[in-house]
Design a protein around this nucleic acid. Structure first.
Lengths: 278, 278
DNA sequence: TTCAATTTGGACTAGCAGTCTAAAAATAGA
DNA sequence: TCTATTTTTAGACTGCTAGTCCAAATTGAA
């Protein structure tokens, strides 16, 4: 991306964090980034499109950090899950997103609203998938409820503490929420207590991401299962496959080659082909 | 209050609900309520002060309805608690407060922000007090955590469903959240799992309301306990006392008179005196 | 040097919240 | 009914906003 454009985004970002979206005028951004109005509207069709670009950038970095956290560790590792949630909340806090997101809802900008809404759905859907990965498949029917519960408790607690100007101990908060959810897991499975259809979140996903993420999840689970009953060198191969498949641009040839070294790879091969080639 | 001023508030209210706070201009309000700009700024110092007046009015009505729900029923009745939460959420939904409250945070108006924040704290504090009343005093050390959890789950679920344009079954949501909290109650008491100091919410209350609400709560609990081990006519007297003390302007003479008919009334008399006469 | 793309600064539009004023209208008191 | 006071009115006005437009200046590459 244009280096100049990036400079504008950074200037705007810091101003939004400091003063909030509405209180930051385009004029402020022009002065801070030393460009002219004409150039600004060359780069961004509007102030709200600029904000969306910034959201996109932040989100991209968040996802990258989340992937790094998971690298080389099993998907059912609770500590990984905790760290991944923490990544998001840290980013939210650093970027004052609690306030920024809210600022969006007041604007009349329908696109912007839709954008932020979709973001929220995606996060819930991610949480749901991870819950199924961390606990096991028994939790699936209740996973939408639990995702909303987990997200709600963490979000609400952080939000409250920020508003109250108290110290925010992210780690403690996330662990607390997860302990409550863990109890709820047993609870809802035993009593078959369900509020929302577990597929409600998938339905709200854009089609493409939905299929892709579903396949990815199935793959990771499959590999996870295989890892458990595998020897050391087999586990290394499987672990490598997980990492490679998770990356933004998986190297197909490498994966195919490694796949040859994996025992009982018929099902796996089919799944991976389905994932890699649409 | 001035009938004309009320008309303006109603016009503004409906516009805010329909179009949102930011998207409604003062001009719109003037046209809808057929007054002039001069009159508007006679009534309200600013657009945001108008919004606060509306919030105040809504809140007042909410509290009134909540009091009515409780009338003649014991404070530990779970159904009462559910209905009371429902009142708030219904009001929020009817008045589109999810959007309105958010709209506030974008404005640069520090007063308005503080106002909404305090509102949120008050609601959490109310939830906390009610949790102690509904479950019992053992829950007190964990009551702030549980209040935030309960509020977080309900709020988040409703908010999600509204965003997803799905049906919102308030009753089912609240009952679900309360079942989760109920399990959590046993859980945290057993494991002594505490996140936040239970007094954190009280500390955020304005001094006056704090003391008053504390005394009120103690009174209600005391009366509740007495009711359990009382005969029918005694229970009727105690029930009346609860209602009267809960009202906006308790009639002191009536209370004193009724108090004479209550057995073992020394402690109760002291508490009521403390409550009524500051 | 030439040519095309980019950048510039500022004029401009339309709309916003809020202020102010002089005149009109409503209200109350005698 | 007349008078004095208060309230209401319409609109001009300030200073701000986002976004459009354009001729002129600058830049980079061939």
């Amino acid at each position: 991306m244009n280096e100049r454009k990036l400079k504008v985004m950074e200037a705007a970002h810091s101003l939004f964090v400091k003063k909030g979206y509405a209180a930051t005028s385009v004029q402020d951004i022009l002065e801070k980034s030393s460009i002219s109005k004409g150039t600004f509207y060359n780069y961004f069709p509007s102030k709200s499109e600029l904000l969306m670009s910034i959201f996109d950038k932040i989100n991209h970095e968040t996802n990258k950090r989340r992937t790094e956290v998971l690298a080389g560790r099993p998907v059912h590792d609770k500590e990984v899950f905790i760290e991944q949630i923490k990544v998001k909340m840290e980013v939210n806090k650093e970027n004052n997103l609690f306030v920024l997101f809210q600022g969006v809802f007041v604007s009349d900008d329908a696109e912007l609203k839709k954008f932020v809404k979709q973001h929220h759905f995606n996060e819930l859907c991610w949480t749901q998938r991870r819950l199924i990965e961390v606990f096991n498949d028994d939790v699936r029917p209740y996973s939408a409820d639990l995702a909303i519960t987990l997200y709600g408790v963490v979000q609400n607690t952080v939000h409250f503490l920020v508003a109250a100007e108290e110290r925010v101990e992210l780690d403690a908060i996330i662990r607390y929420a997860l302990r409550r959810v863990e109890t709820s897991v047993n609870d809802v499975i035993q009593t078959k207590d369900m509020l929302l259809d577990s597929r409600i979140l998938e339905r709200l996903q854009p089609e493409f991401a939905l299929n892709r993420e579903k396949k990815k999840s199935a793959l990771m689970q499959k590999i996870g299962v295989m890892q458990e009953s595998a020897g050391d060198e087999q586990r290394e191969l499987l672990s490598f496959l997980q990492d490679e498949l998770r990356s933004a641009a998986p190297r197909c040839r490498v994966i195919e080659a490694v796949l040859e070294g994996v025992a009982e790879n018929k099902d796996l091969k089919a799944l991976i082909n389905g994932f890699l080639h649409e």
